[in-house]
Each structure stands twice: as structure tokens, then as C-alpha cells.
């Protein structure tokens, strides 16, 4: 039960007897966000340094080193291929190389997402001495987990670039969509990571929630299969997952060379893709990034008291 203001005697100064000084007013949301951005911009070197630290730690004492960056998405892709083989066997339809390529691309994107949020969620609690003893904008810690994962994933993506031509995937003009899609993915991931990291400081449940998302979220996201594989309702469901349109968009732009502003409707009249889905995902990504940054800013000064 929360006591009301009436239950609690007002505090007075022990020395002068004067009532307590006014509490600092909370600045409006946009002003807070702006201050947060300026703070972060002033500490960009720290972001770079922490990213370097995390990369070094990840690879220097691992026997396979940088190979891990390739291996993780590769295993995700292999799992996807297994499932796809099963599905095609049941459907009696042959497998085409572009389908496998699509899975590989989405596997890389998915590894980025899971890697960033799982490292990011723990970033504050793992750096306890820093959080309680030294000042810097705390958002740097979860964000450095995201940037570290970006470098990591870039290595995996580079390996993918070598393989894609083997599946006869050429260069399309629609590749121009890829930077936008990746930006949405990074924004969405950053927003979620900020929220999860802050949440984990106060409630360790956050860690478990994120574990569930990273291990089972893949079944609710079109990674191993295309959104259209589940009928009209299933398609809508998969594309309402904010990551759905991003992943499908990547596949369409890179593998199919499909312009993303043009909708795709199958023979039964199910909308497999439309620009509206992309807009929907963009709204989510930007909204979540804003909300995450604001929430983080508003709680970051109590981290040192709670951890």
C-alpha cells in the first residue's frame, strides 16, 4: 500500500527548521531528450572505446576468434534451412536457392537483434562499478552493446556477400532500400535494449523476459519462413510483429529485387506485402527509440541507488 501525502509528516531542516527545499522540476520530454542527445554526443569517444573493449574481449580469448561472428548466424540459417526442408517435403514442393538465400539474410539480421539485446540488457548490471562510481551518460553502455553487435554482424554479413552470388542473387536497384531497413532495425533494437537494460537494473525479471524473446521470438518472426506461408491471418499476424516487415523487406529488396512501395497480393487475395507495413514498422522503430531514450534518461540517475 502506498501511503498518501497526508500520512507522512513534512520534513524540516534539522538546523534551521525551514521546510524542505523545492524538488527539482522535471524538464519537458523533448528538452530531456535533447539534453540526453547532447550528453551522448559529448561522449562519442567513450562509445567507441567501449565498443572496442567489448570486441576485444569477445574475440581475443576465444580460440575461434572472429569466426564466431560468422558461425552464430550460420547456425541460425542452418536451422532455418532444416525447417524449410521439412516444410517443402510436406508440401511436396521443391526448394529454390533464393529461398535459402532469403533465410540466410534474415538469419544474419536476427542474430544482430538477439545479440544486441541480450548483451545490452546485461550491460548495466555487468558494469556495476562504473554505474555506481563514475559519471557518464549511462545510455552509452547498452548502446555500446548495440554498436558492438553491429560490427560483429557486419563480419557475418560480409561472409554472406561472398555466398549470395553463388545462389545467383544479383544486384538490384532495390538494394537502395537496405540502408533504410537496417536503420529501422537498429533503431528498434536500440529502443528495446535501452528499455530492457534500464528494466534489468530495477527488476532482474527483465533478463528472463529477454531470454524468452531471444530464444523463442524467432518463431513469431518471419525468419525461417516467409510471411505468406501461414495464410491470410498468419501473414497479418507475422507482419504486425514490428520486426516482420523489416525482415520481409530485406528479403524482398535483396533476393527478389521487389520495389517495396509496390504491394504483393497472392492469388487468394492475401496481401503479402504493402508499403503500409513498412510505414507501420518505421513508426514502431522510431517510437520505440524515442520512448526508450526518454525512459532511460528519466531513470538513469537512480541506477546508482538501486543496483
Amino acid at each position: 500500500m502506498t501511503p498518501t501525502a497526508l500520512d507522512v509528516p513534512e520534513s524540516r531542516s534539522p538546523t534551521t527548521g525551514a521546510p524542505m527545499a523545492p524538488r527539482p522540476a522535471r524538464p519537458p520530454a523533448l528538452q530531456d531528450l535533447w539534453a540526453s542527445m547532447r550528453d551522448l554526443a559529448g561522449h562519442h569517444e567513450l562509445l567507441v572505446e567501449l565498443t572496442k573493449r567489448d570486441l576485444r574481449i569477445r574475440y581475443t580469448q576465444a580460440a575461434m576468434g572472429v569466426l564466431w561472428a560468422v558461425l552464430t548466424p550460420l547456425v541460425v540459417a542452418l536451422s532455418g534451412w532444416m525447417i524449410r526442408f521439412g516444410m517443402s517435403y510436406l508440401a511436396g514442393a521443391p526448394i529454390r536457392a533464393p529461398e535459402l538465400a532469403g533465410i540466410a539474410i534474415k538469419a544474419v539480421a536476427w542474430s544482430f537483434f538477439t545479440g544486441a539485446i541480450s548483451f545490452g540488457t546485461l550491460s548495466l548490471t555487468a558494469n556495476l562499478p562504473l554505474v555506481t562510481k563514475v559519471y557518464f551518460p549511462r545510455a552509452i553502455l547498452p548502446l555500446s552493446a548495440v554498436t558492438t553487435q553491429m560490427v560483429d554482424t557486419a563480419i557475418g554479413a560480409a561472409a554472406l556477400l561472398v555466398v549470395l552470388p553463388l545462389a545467383h542473387i544479383g544486384v538490384h536497384r532495390t538494394l537502395l532500400w537496405v540502408p533504410l531497413l537496417l536503420a529501422l532495425l537498429v533503431l528498434f533494437t536500440s529502443g528495446l535494449t535501452l528499455i530492457a537494460a534500464a528494466g534489468n537494473v530495477f527488476y532482474r525479471d527483465a533478463k528472463h523476459v529477454i531470454q524468452l524473446v531471444t530464444s523463442f521470438g524467432i518463431f513469431f518472426t518471419p525468419v525461417f519462413f516467409d510471411a505468406g506461408a501461414f495464410g491470410p491471418r498468419g501473414t497479418r499476424f507475422l507482419l504486425l510483429n514490428p520486426l516482420g516487415p523489416v525482415f520481409e523487406g530485406l528479403r524482398l529488396a535483396i533476393v527478389d529485387g521487389h520495389p517495396l512501395l509496390v504491394p504483393i497480393v497472392n492469388a487468394e487475395g492475401t496481401v503479402l506485402w504493402s508499403a503500409a507495413y513498412l510505414g507501420y514498422a518505421a513508426l514502431w522503430a522510431v517510437g520505440l527509440a524515442f520512448f526508450g531514450a526518454l525512459l532511460f534518461r528519466r531513470v538513469e540517475f537512480s541506477f546508482a541507488e538501486y543496483v
Binding site: T4, A5, E10, R23, R298, V299, S302
Partner: peptide
Amino acid sequence: RALRRPDPDAG
């Protein structure tokens, strides 16, 4: 915590 202003009671 994120959205509300800090509670005003001073005790």
C-alpha cells in the same frame, strides 16, 4: 517513474 512528476510529498 518515467512519466509522472516526482511525488510532491516531502516526508
